[in-house]
């Protein structure tokens, strides 16, 4: 299985979803100045096709519902990378009623990047580290989600009604 991990490491498809403010540092990484495609990382449009889910910065509770459903739609093996301070311990919005504080309680995060919006080099660092880690089979976040699934669901249930939430519109 480790040979397949090599291939998984070399071609990580990132979900094109700017959940927070850190996504403004993704364009320089995706495009010509830092060019993450050299590592085989390209932005994919739907969760079905993506391997990494980038939580770029803070997460409003409304976005958390969508992110969880998106995460559950992704095909495993899948990984989550937390950008910046807001995913670690609430960041600047530690006292805001609308954002979550510790991403760890709701999603199995494989890697956190320091920075209040990490620099492109820091993001590239994370991709290289993720690549090495996946090739050596170190990052198993998606297994963790399956193993203690109900712990995650209990945390999520504290914030919103996990089963029956839906968009309210006319």
């Amino acid at each position: 299985m480790s040979i397949l991990n090599k291939f998984r490491g070399k071609s990580l498809w990132m979900l094109h979803y700017c959940t927070g403010c850190g996504a403004i540092e993704m364009p320089p990484v995706m495009t010509s100045r830092y060019d993450m495609e050299r590592f085989g990382i390209i932005p994919m449009a739907t969760p079905r096709q993506a391997d990494i889910l980038l939580i770029t910065g803070y997460l409003a509770v409304k976005t958390l519902k969508r992110v969880i459903r998106t995460y559950e739609q992704m095909h495993s093996p899948k990984w989550v990378v937390g950008f910046g301070a807001c995913t670690v311990n609430g960041g600047m919005y530690w006292d805001s009623y609308a954002t979550i504080k510790k991403l760890e309680l709701y999603l199995p995060v494989d890697l956190y990047i320091a920075g209040c919006m990490p620099r492109p080099e820091a993001i590239m660092d994370a991709f290289i580290e993720l690549r090495k880690g996946i090739s050596s089979g170190k990052y198993e976040g998606w297994k963790k989600y399956i193993e203690n699934y109900d712990w995650y669901k209990k945390n999520q249930a504290k914030l919103f009604d996990v089963k029956k939430w839906s968009v309210n519109y006319e």
Binding site: C21, A60, K62, T63, R66, T99, Y169
Partner: peptide, 13 residues
């Protein structure tokens, strides 16, 4: 339009 995904309650903070 369905906004609200980036609400961080700046004015409250």
């Amino acid at each position: 339009a369905n906004p609200g995904y980036l609400h961080r309650a700046f004015e409250k903070l």
